[in-house]
Nucleic acid binder design. Structure first.
Lengths: 221, 221
DNA sequence: CCTACCGATCGGTAGG
DNA sequence: CCTACCGATCGGTAGG
């Protein structure tokens, strides 16, 4: 047998062993990003404790020890997932709001503001590439106090946009119940959708937004 | 040294080693119940995966292998926690409702029914000895399909009581939004309280109930 | 980022 | 229900 010929005639072994890395896959945070994305997906699917760092490594074609080149430990990876999620959610919230303000000739009513915020929240929670936020909501207890503190600052920033809107609606009589408890219940209704919403199913994110406003506001049809 | 005297004079060693078991702590499901209670508490506190069967055993003064005398495996213990929780929740719902019907001279209005259901739900979710239900809500994905099916039957039974009440309120115009989505959002608002409610804090379960009705019903004050 | 590895822990079992 | 134990897996590290 001519080994040379045999090797030449063999089909190119594309999927044998570890996939070949092109040069620019290295550096520049590409791999760190890949780890964050895979971790978000797996943490959401199976939970933090039930996901091994080996699973995450395998999901991006790394060996078991390599995630620790990018993150100090498993908890730090979780915290990074949550921080990244909140950063993106905040950016999306701002963009949506700015866009709505720019598109409207008159100043936005409290009602219109709420619609924009709710719709944007559904994007952050249920849209594509949105595993980070559910992970934050459901693995919160794992974080250390310092990690909680860091993420909480972002959460406060996110919520701060809602507070005056809800206050205005309350003054208009469009929103009932104790201020704080009502806000927590609204967020509960929204965040709980992560438990049952099926993308591409019967309801769209616009449908959810409609129902939310009809359900919570006092005289919206 | 007179060992006899020494032993006699030594204080009774109440807390040395494994606590002594009285005869009637054995049998009759006492220990099984203790395991369920400890498991519910620990599963809620740390999550299913982060709780070892050793932790649970230690919490009731057993050795590491002993829980498997009562439960086939860790998942079966979790399923039993959820089933027990739902059985108790169902019983409590029925008792509350029967009690309200008996106490009222006229048939209950849909509004009054909702108040009873919401108040009872807060008991089930936030009251004393209520870890089972949050565990069910937050560790659902761990269950096998058959286990999910078993618990789902109880959940359906629980929800079935709500459906006609919500439908009546919708017909009265007291509840807005798409039927199904509105119901899921109401449960979301209620179930989310398990994330933030602090027993003995600023708000009581009656307060939560008031705010719930004021927030969701169209013309309640 | 991989190789090679370690100590710790975990779910679970046999036998009594 | 305990004793004694096992195989598997896990997070993490040293050295390159």
């Amino acid at each position: 047998m001519d080994e040379d010929t045999l090797l030449t005639e063999a089909p190119p072994r594309r999927s044998r062993g570890r996939p070949r890395k092109t040069f620019d896959e290295r550096d520049d945070g590409n791999r760190r990003q890949a780890l964050l994305r895979a971790a978000a997906r797996l943490f959401r699917q199976n939970g933090f404790s039930a996901t091994s760092t080996r699973d995450i490594a395998a999901a991006v074609g790394m060996r078991s020890g390599s995630p620790f080149y990018h993150f100090e430990n498993k908890e730090a990876l979780l915290a990074a997932v949550m921080e990244e999620g909140m950063q993106r959610a905040l950016a999306h919230q701002r963009a949506r709001m700015a866009e709505a303000v720019a598109a409207s000739p008159a100043p936005l009513s409290a009602r219109e503001c709420l619609r924009v915020l709710v719709r944007g929240h559904f994007d952050n929670l249920l849209g594509p590439e949105s595993d980070h936020i559910p992970v934050m909501l459901y693995e919160w207890r794992v974080l250390s106090d310092e990690q909680k503190h860091a993420v909480n600052q972002l959460k406060d920033e996110y919520e701060a946009v809602w507070v005056p809107v809800l206050q205005a609606l309350r003054r208009e009589g469009a929103l009932g119940g104790d201020q704080r408890v009502a806000r927590l219940m609204l967020f509960g209704a929204l965040n709980w959708t992560a438990q049952w919403f099926v993308p591409g199913g019967a309801a769209s994110l616009d449908d959810l937004t409609d129902t939310t406003l009809q359900l919570f506001l006092k005289d919206a049809s």
